[in-house]
Design a protein around this nucleic acid. Structure first.
Lengths: 225, 225
DNA sequence: GCTTTTGCTCAAGCTTTTGTTAAGGAGTGT
DNA sequence: ACACTCCTTAACAAAAGCTTGAGCAAAAGC
């Protein structure tokens, strides 16, 4: 889930946008003032900040500078009208993108995705990304968003295999063959247990799945939620 | 083998990149202009397009829009030195990724792999479509228009089998043999029940059939209404 | 038009599959 | 040998799915 922080002084707009973003699956937090926004960004560490210009307590350029000073989070600024010159100025001042008010939520969503994608394309070479999960086979590291996942060898191999076949159902026997290298003899229950552990570390459970979707009678698949 | 189409106006760069990509095992075709590129993409249907910006005959955004209009191929744009704003614009306009010139071939290759990997899940190779029904054997997902159908294993297998023999009548015994893998012993009633459930989930009933057409005395067939 | 056959649907009971926890054992490094 | 992590197995709980039989509806045959 993408954590979005919205800084907007008009309460009505704030509510509308926050609800719309939440509805399409984002984790939304809001602030009404620049000062509050700064505090919140530092403490909650969002994935992207949407910053309305024309806040009562601080000039947009100043605000941006301060945000940049405290965090490397991508910032999308919302400018009043097509005031191109100020938009460009802000982009140079460290904004990552901008939308012109009044903006549609779809438009905003496109910007959010673009900004996040830019952030994601920089890391390693053959990393596999599934939603918030980032897997680096080379270093055998996996992350869930910012947090590094502390996985056991089998858990990592299991996650990697599922990620390589992302979206495709994999049977437990196939898992046993590839991860355990025991096409016969191995117990499928072992896979179940490891899946359960993986689920726990991914912050989900079988009854409330996000990434690991069991396909009853067949196997399991890893999907981007 | 991955078929890559490179659109780049500078002949020297074009030659170098094309050779490098060919050396690592890709099937490379090139175009020097936007117009030629469009034609080639339509006729040769490559797996991925690498689009250089700053073509002489067409603006990058325009070009991308036209490419998108004629094909769903993934497009990687190559932008001049950190011209972020245009990169952002192009990503939103439908580009799948971008590289900054001058780029290394390894870097480009990594992007190609990433883009292809992303693409693998979306269109699905062996999906079967019958009217509004879309079946993806790999992920074992079936949709009716936009809605995902929540099918049990047997229901899915049943639908899949009928879809594979779309338009042909299948006897219940054949269904028992293939879906239930019980050529003998199985009761045809069971098939009836599953068919009934399938009908319900497809939004139809035996008295008002759309997809599942019973052929009295013989069996059943799946048709596009 | 009546009988027979075939097909449809419902609901209850049953089996299989899966999720999760906990306990023990193998292996590794100190 | 000890502490450690990791893996496997067993056990129970819960969920999902399957089968069955009966009643009713529809079609075919006479």
């Amino acid at each position: 889930m993408v954590k979005v922080h919205l800084i907007e002084d008009e309460s009505e707009i704030r509510r509308l946008v926050a609800e719309a973003l939440a509805r399409i699956g984002h984790d939304v937090e809001t602030s009404a003032t620049a000062l509050e926004g700064l505090q919140q960004v530092v403490s909650t560490n969002p994935d992207v900040v949407i910053l309305d210009l024309g806040l009562p307590d601080l000039d947009g350029g100043e605000m941006l500078k301060m945000l940049r000073a405290v965090s490397a989070v991508p910032v999308i600024v919302a400018t009043a009208r097509d005031d191109d010159s100020s938009a460009i100025r802000l982009l140079n001042a460290g904004a990552d993108d901008y939308v012109v008010k009044p903006y549609s939520v779809e438009h905003l969503e496109a910007r959010i995705r673009a900004v996040l994608r830019r952030g994601l394309t920089s890391p390693g070479e053959d990393t596999i990304t599934v939603g918030e999960i980032v897997i680096e086979p080379g270093s055998r590291e996996a992350r869930l968003g910012e947090e590094t996942l502390d996985l056991s060898p089998k858990e990592f191999d299991l996650l990697l295999m599922l990620a390589e076949k992302m979206g495709h159902v994999v049977t437990k026997r196939e898992i046993l063959a590839e991860v355990w290298r025991e096409p016969y003899g191995g117990s499928e229950r072992t896979v179940d247990v490891h899946l359960s552990w993986l689920r726990k570390k991914l912050g989900e459970s079988a009854s409330e799945p996000k990434y690991l979707q069991t396909v009853h009678g067949v196997g399991i698949k890893l999907i981007a939620p």
